[in-house]
Amino acid sequence: MKTIIVFIITILMLTSMAYAAESMIWGNMLIGNILSYGTKDSLNMGPLFTILQSQYFRNIFLVIVIGVPAVFLMHYLVLGARFFSHDGKKVYVFSLFNRLIHLLAAISFLVLIPTGLMMIFGVYFGGGPLVMTARHLHGLATALFFLAVIPMFFFWVADMLPTVDDIKWIAIFGGYLSRKQSEVPAGKFNAGQKMWFWIATLGGIVMIATGAAMYFQDFNLGIASAFGLSQIDLLRASAIVHNIMALLITALFITHVYMSLFAVKGAINSMITGYKEEQELKYLHSSFYRKLKAQNKI
């Protein structure tokens, strides 16, 4: 307990020191920033951010939040959901700790993604206190996600490493393009889940880092200089990376929700109870199923 308190105090002191130091944006470097803005020798971060933010980001997000659900709606209407018998045996796949951490991450995502979109489309909400509150909630939910992402990364990373099954899975799009019930090559997690895992954990850490940079804004921890950037260019780069990463995460999050809630009926139960239907494992995670069979765990 004592070490934790000391740790927290040290962090607070370090951050306040970073704040107390001379401004990294509005100090003497201001002249250099002005003179280099948009010149040939500079990284052109300012104009690049301006173009991306003013002309591209909002439109691409619009395509994602309308297009991705539209594609899945078509899929649902044309090919329909997968059903697996819920009367058969069940296999225990997710421990209580797995499920609790996943729940924490899920709650944080359910706050992060809508509040993030509220900021991007802030003009349609009229701005002001409503969108400002969304921005503050976005920051608070980051703390929740931060607590979830590290344990989540470590307890699933071994199962998330790429295998030969993943290539086969991608080649047939996980079998989601046909109505036929056939055994899909996948381990405990299929290639789609693996993609989501890496984007959500490593990408999530990038989101936390870039988001924190934008949140704290004027700090001096030697991060910008380590990248050979000025503080303002670090912020611009952070905003660009944060938005591009957010596009990926939003698209895959919608996919993740569709798969667990709609595409495979009852798939979400395994993340609530910890038990997965044997039939579901047999068809959608065939390699994993065979491995469990061989080990006499079923």
């Binding site: 944006i25 002005i34 803005y37 300012g46 303002i232």
Partner: peptide, 10 residues
């Protein structure tokens, strides 16, 4: 803070 990132003059 986006305006600050876009502004050449801080």
């Amino acid at each position: 803070g986006y305006c600050l990132y876009a502004c050449p003059f801080g």
